[in-house]
């Protein structure tokens, strides 16, 4: 990232975001102390194992969590506008025009009673509501996005119903539909899980084009660290609902500082080299209701000391854009 781009204010600024679910009388904390920043033409990767709160982070930014979820933040600013005080109706106007999301399970994301063409028509109509798009042929545009993800003749799949398409096919369609909205910010939740390598590369290409041509910002949620390395400008590593390390992708891969990041990178290297079963980081994620008092990773950490278990570590800035939540750097 060049120095002048740094001067541009971030498109999305998140400070101290937390989300908890009311489960009967107890609250389950899903994410807390989440700070994020993303600029136009930037891809931010959020990586972590499943259950670390990556998806919840995406959903709480878009205000898509179920009713029994409580979301709070010191700041949730999008394009200069605070999102939390917005009415539901005003927020809805942002979705599908400025903000969009690609879901992890493509089969569940489609209305099973309606054809693909029906979905496409609705989304084009939605995209057309944005003022600066009058006179643009959005249908042609959507078809181009579809062919970009390897669906050469979209008219063939339009009359089909979701259950008649494979998961991979649906995933590609869903990504193309989201791209057709031309959002300022696209949150993609594990978008390539169901896809083979060739299609995966097509999708990555699509995300790059989205960012280069339209200047979109993309939050790319994944557990696949090598995929993130190839696409993302910056990476946030998430563990048990907290961001433990943030930094430019290159720095993070060359000089990981948090023991969890180190573990993740080692694991993926082993996977690349031997192709066999990866040596996972021993231990499990703490559950939402029983959390350690100190550092959340301490029970699984090889470096854990007394100080780690005593109190939660603060966020420490190693350089202007690289920070870590670990006492070893304090």
């Amino acid at each position: 990232m060049s120095a002048e781009a740094d001067l541009e204010p971030p498109l999305l600024e998140v400070k101290n975001l937390s989300a908890r679910f009311r489960m009967g009388k107890v609250d389950m904390l899903a994410i807390r102390r989440v700070d994020l920043e993303i600029r136009r033409r930037e891809v931010l990767g959020i990586i972590g194992e499943s259950g670390s709160g990556k998806s919840v982070t995406g959903l709480s930014i878009l205000r898509l969590l179920p009713e029994h979820a409580l979301v709070a933040a010191d700041q949730l600013r999008f394009d200069g506008q605070e999102l939390l005080p917005l009415s539901d109706e005003a927020f809805r106007e942002l979705r599908g025009t400025h903000l969009a999301m690609v879901f992890q399970d493509p089969v569940g994301a489609f209305n099973p009673a309606k054809s693909i063409g029906w979905h496409l028509d609705r989304i084009i109509a939605r995209a057309a509501t944005r003022a600066n798009r009058q006179g643009v042929d959005l249908t042609q545009d959507a078809n181009r996005w579809l062919s970009d993800v390897g669906i050469a003749q979209p008219e063939r799949i339009l009359p089909l119903y979701p259950h008649q398409l494979s998961g991979g096919m649906l995933q590609r369609t869903l990504i193309a539909l989201s791209a057709a909205l031309q959002p300022d910010l696209l949150i993609a939740d594990e978008p390539t899980t169901n896809l083979d390598n060739i299609v995966e590369r097509q999708i990555i290409g699509l995300f790059r084009r989205l960012k280069d041509k339209l200047g979109s910002a993309i939050i790319f949620i994944t557990h696949d660290i090598s995929l993130a390395a190839g696409l993302c400008d910056r990476i946030a590593v998430m563990y048990a609902g907290e961001i433990v390390e943030t930094g430019p992708a290159e720095t993070l891969f060359r000089n990981p500082t948090h023991p969890y990041t180190i573990g993740l990178i080692e694991t993926s290297r082993q996977l690349d080299e031997r192709g066999g079963r990866l040596k996972e980081i021993p231990g499990e994620l703490p559950s939402g209701s029983h959390r350690p008092r100190g550092c959340l990773f301490a029970p699984r950490c090889g470096f854990a000391a007394e100080a780690c278990r005593a109190a939660p570590p603060a966020n420490i800035a190693l350089s202007p854009n690289h920070s870590v939540r670990c006492v070893r750097y304090g």
């Binding site: 878009l62 969009a100 999301m101 879901f103 099973p112």
Partner: peptide
Amino acid sequence: NKDYVVAARSFGFHP
């Protein structure tokens, strides 16, 4: 409660 409802909401359709 289905995912497709969350997806539909993510596209900003009217409730």
